[in-house]
Computed example of a mutant assay.
Amino acid sequence: MNFSGARVASFAVPLGLGLLLGLTGPIAEHWGGRPGAAVGAVFTGGWPWACYAFLVGYFRRSRIESVVLAPLGLAIGVVAYYLTKENLASLSGLDSSGAGSSGIAFWGVLAFFFGAPLGLLGNLARVPGIGGLFFRLLVPLVAFYETSMRLETEALGPSQVVLGTWTTVRFTAVAVAIAMVSHTVWVWWRSRRVRSAGVGVG
């Protein structure tokens, strides 16, 4: 019984996080202010969604579960995002009829189209050492690319808070990538040194 409960929880947690992912962006934007604008800028971008699907796969031992849960969680997040955004717009007296259903249909399809491979890539990133390094670098690379494109194409539109948030995310992505590469190289060098010492002793 305990095993069944733990098993159910292991499926419910990633799906619940997908729901939270979908709720965070529109609620933060509706909240307003500098904190709301910053959080909204992060969670309405594409890279947190890619990161979510990737991490779902990374923390699953089964590749099949990675491929199934990642797109399912993304789809739940998409539905939550647009329903929340539509309801908050209605509370503010804005007309958003039709926008939610079309957004759910479009991004829901993309959630399944991209979610499965992202979940698989996350699972492949579990490979230790240099073998899984490329896969582990995907999320910071996606974050860097997206924020760079936004800063280049939308520099005159968003507020300074949003621009500052994108810049922070970009530099953080670079720092994370450098840390990943450095750690992997250090572990590889240390293990090679230990093996060499063992051969010398033998």
Results as ranks from 00 to 15, higher is better:
Gly200Asn: 12
Leu55Asn: 04
Pro128Trp: 08
Leu118Val: 05
Ala70Ile: 01
Ser92Arg: 14
Gly157Arg: 15
Gly103Arg: 09
Ala9Cys: 04
Leu17Ser: 06
Ser97Thr: 14
Ala173Thr: 02
Lys85Asp: 13
Phe54Lys: 01
Val181Asn: 02
Phe106Ala: 10
Tyr81Met: 07
Val161Thr: 15
Gln160Asn: 13
His30Arg: 11
Ile27Gln: 08
Ala70Arg: 00
Ser66Ile: 08
Leu124Ala: 11
Met180Asn: 08
Ser196Gln: 12
Phe106Ser: 08
Thr168Cys: 13
Met1Pro: 06
Val176Lys: 01
Phe114Tyr: 12
Leu156Cys: 00
Val199Ile: 13
Thr147Val: 07
Phe3Val: 14
Asn87Val: 11
His30Cys: 05
Glu152Asn: 10
Arg195Val: 13
Ala197Trp: 08
Val176Ser: 05
Gly57Ile: 01
Val56Ser: 04
Gly32Lys: 06
Pro48Asn: 08
Ala177Ile: 10
Val169Gly: 01
Ser92Tyr: 03
Phe3Trp: 13
Ala155Met: 13
Cys51Trp: 13
Thr153Gly: 04
Phe43Val: 06
Trp107Gln: 12
Gly93Phe: 06
Thr24Met: 12
Ala9Tyr: 02
Thr44Leu: 12
Thr44His: 14
Arg170Thr: 02
Gly25Phe: 09
Trp47Asn: 02
Tyr145Asp: 02
Pro48Asp: 07
Gly98Leu: 05
Trp47Leu: 04
Ala173Gln: 02
Arg150Ser: 07
Ser101Pro: 02
Gly73Pro: 06
Gly93Lys: 03
Leu72Ile: 12
Val39Met: 11
Leu118His: 01
Thr24Gly: 05
Val169Ile: 14
Leu124Asn: 01
Trp107Arg: 07
Ser102Asp: 11
Ser101Val: 15
Gly202Lys: 15
Pro128His: 09
Ala50His: 00
Ala89Cys: 07
Phe3Asp: 12
Leu94Tyr: 14
Leu91Ile: 05
Ser96Leu: 08
Ala173Glu: 06
Phe144Gly: 00
Asn2Phe: 12
Ala177Cys: 05
Val79Met: 03
Trp186His: 15
Thr44Ala: 03
Pro128Lys: 08
Ile64Leu: 15
Tyr52Met: 07
